[in-house]
Every structure is written in structure tokens, then in C-alpha cells.
Amino acid sequence: MAVHIGEVRQNTPAAIDIKGLSKEYTTARGTVKAMAPMDLSIKAGEFICVVGTSGCGKSTLLRLVAGFEKATTGSIAVDTEEVLGPSPSRGVVFQDYGLFPWLTVRENVAWGPKQAHLKTSLVKERCDKYIGAVGLELFADRYPHELSGGMQQRVSIARVLANEPSVMLMDEPFGALDALTRRGMQEQLSHLHRDIKTTVIFITHSIEEAVLLADRVVVMTGGAAKNVPGHIREIVTIDLPENRDVNSEHFNDLERSISRLVNTEEEDSSHGVDADASAEVQAGETNAEDEHKPVAVPRV
């Protein structure tokens, strides 16, 4: 589905600089090193996908960047400003749409700008632009229960965009959708990103989805199940054109290379973790990252 945003403008996309970032949890059995210290630099306007097996720290990384949790060590800077807590400049889209059921599409999208005490005319302008950006002009006065799952997720994306964030954080937003709807949402998100150039960190279990959307793919590994703290194994540059063919040889070469990184053991697993203590964290991390199994995207 093509998206036409016209003169919609965002805040300037932000660069993200992560240095020495780690996360530990304290349980009844001791301290668990959930995520080993990591460094990651993301350019302004870049689309980054993070892949890896359940429990490797993908969602933990996203929650730290969002400011929902505090790091044990290290720092996160968004355009040189340190992340100390949540901010509307870092919008988050979850797998659960999280819409207010008693509000219409327009009222849901208007919620953030209204909370920021913007002028009524500006709130209306943003609603019109971003509802149009996700192709829901004809459904602006409908309630969430009157929409399909894919349409509800479009509303949740428009609601984040209406705050005009510099960074958009997406935690498996299409994981609960059927395969055809998921493909349509992927295409729409790709078009949106080309137009608005917001910096995106997108968590997914689907390697094909990552190759389809990303400028670079961050491959994470480790986790409680492997008795190794989650960490970045490799960062893969996706040197493909904007319009990508999932059947092309190069696309499939990249997909296979990333799959090998995700599914094969590292030769050097030097990040030890206490196995007994890690059992308590593993269940929580799995629930956060793997509530829904990934949906395979059909090749067309």
C-alpha cells in the first residue's frame, strides 16, 4: 500500500549512541547478568532491526533506550542528551495495540498532542496528517473494536507519529498479525520511513522481515537458556535497494547469513552467567519477547 504524506514534517531524526550498556537483575538466587556491556552507534534517520533468539536481550535493549528501565552500567545518548527516563521524543509501538477502546481513531491519535497542550488547530492538523499517512482517513471516526488487527496497529503507529518523535521504538509490532496483513504493514512502514526518516529500532524474530526493512541488522545472541548474557554478536549491513525483492539471490544470501549467526553457537562464549539465578529471569524475558510466535511471510 502506497503512502503519501505530503508536507508532513517530523522532529529532526536523532542519532543514538550506546556505550558500555549492560543490565543485571537481582533474584532470590543471586544476580543475573541479562545483558553484557555493549556499544552501538545509530545514525540519525537509520532503520535498525534487532534479531535473536528468545531471551537474548532484544526487548531489554529497547526498554533501556525507551527509558522504561535503568541500565546497570553504561549510557544511552539521543543526540547527546542522556536517556534518564521515558520521553515523547522516543515513541514506542508495542505488539499489543494499546488503544483506548472508548475513543475513536481520531481521538486516540489526538491523545498525545492534547497531553502536550498543543493548540486545537495543531492537534487537528497532526491528526489529519498522520491518519492520512497510514491510510485510515475513512475510518477516523470508528472505534477500535470496529477495526481489523492490521488497522488497529496502523492507529497505534499514527498515535506515536502524532507526537513527532525523533526516535521510534517498535517491539515486534507485527508479530500477532496474519501473514498477508503483516506483509502489507511491512510495505507501509517502509514507505513511511522513506518519507519521514525517523530513526527506528525495530525488534523482530523474523529474519526475512529484518532484511526487508533494515539499513542494518543487529544480531544478538546469548541469554539465560545459553548460560551467557545477551550481547551483540554481529552487525550486518543490508546493501539492498529501497524496493526489495524477497526472491532475489542477494536477499536470500543475506537472510541465510543472518540465520546462521542467530542459530549457530559462537566459538568463544566468554560471558559467563549463574545458571540457577538465570532461571528466574528467563521466564520473564521469554514472556516479553516471545508472547507470539513469528508469522512466516509468504514469498511473492
Rank of each mutant, 00 (worst) to 15 (best):
G6P: 14
Q10W: 05
P13N: 04
D17A: 00
K19H: 11
K23V: 05
A28R: 11
G30R: 09
T31A: 11
M35C: 07
M38N: 01
D39R: 06
D39Y: 04
A44V: 09
S54Y: 06
C56V: 02
C56H: 02
K58M: 09
S59D: 06
L62G: 03
A66P: 08
A71D: 05
G74H: 15
D79L: 10
D79M: 07
T80D: 15
T80P: 05
E82I: 12
E82L: 13
G85I: 11
G91Y: 14
V92D: 02
V93H: 04
D96I: 14
F100V: 13
P101N: 07
L103V: 02
L118G: 06
K124P: 00
E125A: 09
K129C: 03
Y130A: 00
Y130L: 08
L138S: 15
D141S: 01
R142N: 04
H145V: 07
G149W: 11
G149V: 05
G149D: 01
G150Q: 12
M151C: 12
Q152T: 06
V155S: 03
S156R: 12
I157C: 07
R159E: 06
V160W: 00
N163R: 12
E164M: 04
S166H: 00
L169P: 07
L169K: 05
E172H: 05
F174P: 00
L180R: 12
L180N: 08
T181P: 04
E187K: 03
E187I: 05
S190T: 10
D195S: 15
I201C: 12
S206K: 07
S206R: 01
E208K: 15
M220F: 03
V228R: 03
H231M: 00
T237A: 10
D239M: 01
S248H: 13
F251K: 02
S257L: 09
S259T: 13
V262I: 15
E265D: 15
H271S: 03
H271F: 14
A275D: 03
S278E: 08
A283M: 15
D290N: 14
H292A: 14
K293S: 10
P294I: 02
P294L: 01
V295C: 02
A296N: 04
